[in-house]
Amino acid sequence: MSQPRDRLRAAFRTALGLAGDAAVDDLAYRAVPQWDSVAHMQLVATIEAEFDIMLDTDDVIAMSSFAVACTIVGKHGVAI
């Protein structure tokens, strides 16, 4: 089983349609064309499914970068 941070990286790559080796740690919302509002909701669904959690609407709105996503996922009990 991969580490949670690696699973989150993979979720970002899958949801945003990025290459398998793309760097995501510095990604920010709308900083790349792939991370638009539609992809953002897909990203939320992918993260929720990956970690079996349910994000709040406030989390969805606040998730503006990979770093913030780490914090949010951690808030829901994932040791990341």
Binding site: A45, E48, M54
Partner: peptide, 10 residues
């Protein structure tokens, strides 16, 4: 609908 859609899109 907001909350339901979130569960469905998974």
């Amino acid at each position: 609908l907001q909350a339901g859609a979130r569960l469905m899109t998974r």
